[in-house]
Write a protein that binds this DNA or RNA. Structure first.
Lengths: 114, 114
DNA sequence: CGTACACATTGATGACTGTCAATGATAGAA
DNA sequence: TTCTATCATTGACAGTCATCAATGTGTACG
């Protein structure tokens, strides 16, 4: 539930437009970007992200059944998505409600697109 | 140097706009998308893609030095990018010239952004 | 208080992945 | 043909990752 530790990517994106074709990526930039894409490189996490984006607000208990994974596995995947800055968790009572971070998704999209 | 085997993602993208928030992703769609993002989840491949996108046309021999990797490793990474449909290779003489596939990058961007 | 529930953490295991040395395949040069 | 250069393939190794059972943490309820 802690926030993302990635900051370099924000600078790269703010450098405007497409960092990909705008000169060779530095190793630090590549490392940060790779971590974000790694969070998106698992089918379970993609379906999880899709569920959260569609339902707007989902608790972990509602993810176990559609994803057919155990509770520790769900917790593992949510943590990775949070660390990539793609979702955030808000604890209310006993539940944690997950939301996507649309701005983050747009940032990543802008890296690829032009 | 063979072409991508991914076709399902194209259908998903053609379904318009953002497949992520437009209902839960199927397992097949998630698998295909995950493969593409996995190709982007390695720092070496990201810098490689950035070099190719910047120079417009690059042969493998010009990638070894800036990436500081052995020739088999370079070949390994180019193959993964090709299989994800992100680059293509054109053999002219003894060299293979690599190009990015801008349309593919835009497709992936459209999945995340709106 | 004690019990039940939602989620996180730990530890173990099997599978996958990045890396390179050695080798193979093919195309130009001599 | 023989030699050289570019790239692909194979095999091996070390590191990472997805998964779940067991356990821990904290919250709500009675």
């Amino acid at each position: 539930m802690s926030n993302s530790k990635l900051t370099l990517i924000d600078d790269a994106v703010l450098r405007c437009c497409s960092p990909l074709a705008g000169g060779a990526l530095s190793e630090a930039e590549a490392d940060d970007l790779a971590q974000i894409f790694a969070a998106l490189s698992d089918p379970v996490r993609l379906r999880m992200l899709s569920l959260i984006a569609t339902e707007d607000e989902v608790c972990s208990c509602n993810l176990e059944e559609p994803l057919a994974k155990s509770q520790p596995t769900i917790s593992h995947h949510t943590r990775i998505l949070v660390e990539a800055g793609l979702i955030t968790g808000e604890k209310r009572g006993r539940w944690v409600w997950w939301h996507v971070v649309p701005e983050r998704l747009r940032q990543v999209a802008r890296i690829l697109g032009d």
